[in-house]
Nucleic acid binder design. Structure first.
Lengths: 216, 216
DNA sequence: TCTCATCTGACAAAGCTGTGACAAACGAGA
DNA sequence: TCTCGTTTGTCACAGCTTTGTCAGATGAGA
C-alpha cells in the first residue's frame, strides 16, 4: 500500500488531511515535529512526504534534505515566489500554497505518485519478485537468483515500455568499466527468461538495440 | 526541438518569457489571444502549452480544453484555491501563481517535460510509432518492424514537407561508410509502405531525388 | 582446494539486408 | 503521341549479422 508521511503541526489541518488521505486508501503516518519525522522514517519507508514548511522545532526545507530521498510535496502558507523556488530547488515535486482545497492536494498526490512510484515488485501469475529484498518466488516457493539478474529485470521493468539497450543492460549488470563479451547479456537474459517460466516471453528482444519488457 | 506555445497577452511579460525560453533552447511561438492560439496549433504541433488564464478574447480554462491534448502549465494572477483546483481539474500539469521567478517557470517546464516527453513518438492517423520502445502500431495492432526502417520513417516525417534524398536515406539506414546498391533504399521504402498500409502512399517518391512524407 | 558466479567461445537459429532480375512508371525528345 | 533510356517498384533468395543456447574455462572468495 502507498505510504505517506504527513508532517503538519496544526492539529486541525493535520487531522483533516490524515483522515481524508486514509479514506483515499493511503497508509498515513502523521508527525508534528522534525524530531518525530526523523524517527518515523527510521521505523519504516515511505513513498511520499507531505510537508508543512513551518514546524515548531525546525523548518521543512532542512528536514526535506535530511530525510531519505523520496518525492515530497510542500504544503505551506509561504506562497511567495522565493519560497516556492526554494522548495523546488530542494527537489520538491509540488508546492501547494495555503489555503488549498483537500481535493487539490489529493490530485497532486496522485499526480506525483503516478510519476514516481518505485517499482514495488512484480507479480505475474505464479511469479513474485521483490526488488527490495532480492527474493524471487515461484508458486510460493523461493528460488535462488543472482542479484545482478534481478537488477537487470528491474531495469527492464522500470524502463518498460521502452527498450533497454544492450549497453545499458551491461552497465547494469557489471560496473560500467568492464567490457565483457556480448554473450554476457544474453546469458543474463537467458537465465531470467528461464526463471520467469511462462512469463519468460515478456522479455522481448529488439534486434540491433536490446530488450524490452512487455506489460500485459 | 521542444516546441512551446506561449499564450500571454501582457507584452512585457510575454517578451521576457519568450526570450528566456528561447535562450534555454526551446522553440517558442508566442500568441496573445485565444484565436491566435487556435491558429497556431493548426499550423504546428507543440510539446507543451504555457498559458495565461486571463486573455482578451476568452479565458485560458476554455482554451485549454479546445487545444490538442498536450501537457500545459497555467501561469496566472488568480492564485486562489478555487482557480488552482479548476486548473488541475482540466488536467493542468502545473499552476504557477504570479508573481513568479522566471527560474521557477523554467524548473517547472523541465519537470513537466521530463515526465511527459518520454514518448517521443509519432502519431499519424492510424499509425503510432514509439522510438523509445521501437514499436510500431497500425490501428492499435502492433506490427513487427526493423529498427532501421523505423529510423528511416522518422527521418522522412521529421524532414517533411521536404524531401529526403536517397543518399540521406541510405546514410540513415546504414552507417555512412557503406555504399550498397540502390535497391537497398527501395527495399526499405517498400517495407515501410507495406507496414503503413493505407497510409503507405504518404511516402511519395520524388523522381531523381528521393522520397517525401506527405502530411495530411 | 572447493565453490560459486561469471565469462568465453562454439555452434545453431532467427532475422535482416543486399543483390540481381524483371516489370512498371516516368520524362525527354522526336 | 510514340519511343527509348532511365529511374523506381517488386520479388525471391543468398549471405551476413545478431541472438539463443550450452558447456567448459576462469577467477575470486571461503
Amino acid at each position: 500500500m502507498t505510504k505517506i508521511l504527513l508532517i503538519e503541526d496544526d492539529s486541525s489541518l493535520g487531522a483533516t488531511l490524515r483522515d481524508r488521505l486514509q479514506k483515499e486508501g493511503y497508509e498515513v503516518v502523521w508527525t508534528r515535529t522534525v524530531k518525530a519525522s526523523k524517527e518515523a522514517v527510521d521505523k519504516s519507508e515511505f513513498d511520499l512526504y507531505l510537508f508543512d514548511v513551518g514546524l515548531p522545532d525546525g523548518d521543512g526545507f532542512e528536514l526535506a534534505q535530511a530525510l531519505p530521498k523520496k518525492p515530497f510535496i510542500f504544503l505551506t502558507a509561504q506562497g511567495d515566489a522565493e519560497s516556492r523556488l526554494k522548495g523546488y530547488d530542494l527537489g520538491a515535486e509540488e508546492y501547494i500554497p495555503k489555503p488549498f482545497h483537500l481535493r487539490e492536494v489529493l490530485l497532486r498526490i496522485r499526480h506525483v505518485l503516478d510519476n514516481h512510484m518505485p517499482v514495488p515488485g512484480l507479480e505475474i501469475g505464479e511469479i513474485k519478485v521483490n526488488f527490495d529484498s532480492f527474493e524471487f518466488y515461484r508458486d510460493g516457493a523461493k528460488e535462488p537468483i543472482a542479484v545482478k539478474d534481478l537488477l537487470l529485470l528491474k531495469l527492464l521493468v522500470t524502463k518498460s515500455p521502452n527498450a533497454v539497450t544492450r549497453d545499458e543492460a551491461l552497465g547494469c549488470i557489471r560496473g560500467d568499466d568492464k567490457f565483457p563479451s556480448n554473450r554476457t547479456v544474453d546469458n543474463a537474459i537467458l537465465r531470467l527468461r528461464s526463471a520467469l517460466g511462462d512469463a519468460g516471453p515478456r522479455i522481448e528482444s529488439v534486434r540491433g538495440v536490446g530488450y524490452r519488457w512487455r506489460k500485459d
